[in-house]
């Protein structure tokens, strides 16, 4: 039997669409903020839209930091989407106050605006983009094509300290945005697979198939 996917509910993100996308690719899921369920889930997803500070504050408020870290320590799989992925890192330029991220992948979240050089480059980066580079490390990549378009919506991007944590990049003007990051059982998508049409669903399915 397939394991139930836990969608971590910390009050942010379009959880309904994510739940339905997971169902659409043949998996059962549960939206949950239960510490026990998160720690015991073979696959948990950390979704999220909004600011880094708001995201971390919500996680701390629900006292879920420890459980998210523990599920990873136990060898379970954790997938971060958009802000969820950014929260894996140590800190972000988005928050003026020193807000500590989950620290699951070494590195910092940077401001797109500071690095963009072209006048046509709008921030937030909203829209569909494919991949600049794919590193064929994980199996779910085998079903991913460089030309596959994914839906992006963000103003900040991850800058992992170690290059080998970057599995895919997407070009936005002069910046190579790390669009897929990975550290063993931790994976992050900067884009929204649940909002990326058939290609996004296919990627979600291959991720779940591989890690189930």
């Amino acid at each position: 039997m397939k394991n139930k996917v836990i969608i971590i509910d910390y009050g942010l993100g379009n959880l309904l669409s994510l739940k339905r996308a997971i169902e659409a690719v043949g998996y059962d899921s549960k939206i949950s903020d239960s510490k026990k369920e998160i720690e015991n889930a073979k696959i948990s997803i950390l979704p999220g839209v909004g600011s880094f500070q708001n995201g971390m504050e919500n996680i701390e408020k629900k006292k879920l930091r420890e459980n998210i870290v523990n599920t990873v320590k136990k060898g379970n799989n954790l997938l971060g989407i958009c802000l969820g992925m950014q929260l894996f890192f140590n800190s972000s330029e988005e928050s003026k106050k020193k807000i500590k991220g989950l620290g699951l992948i070494d590195g910092k979240i940077l401001d797109l605006k500071k690095k963009l050089k072209n006048n046509d480059a709008k921030v937030p980066h909203i829209g569909w983009a494919s991949f600049e580079r794919l590193k064929f490390k994980k199996n779910f990549f085998l079903k991913l094509n460089k030309k596959d378009d994914m839906y992006f919506i963000h103003s900040y991007y991850a800058n992992p300290k170690n290059n080998h944590h970057i599995l895919a990049t997407t070009k936005y003007f002069n910046i190579s945005i790390p669009s897929i990051v990975n550290n063993n059982n931790i994976t992050g998508f900067q884009f929204h697979p649940e909002k990326s049409g058939l290609k996004g669903l296919k990627l979600l399915r291959s991720y779940l198939d591989e890690n189930n």
Partner: peptide, 10 residues
Amino acid sequence: NYIAQNVFVP
């Protein structure tokens, strides 16, 4: 609610 559950674009 209906559209969000059946349409996987923003």
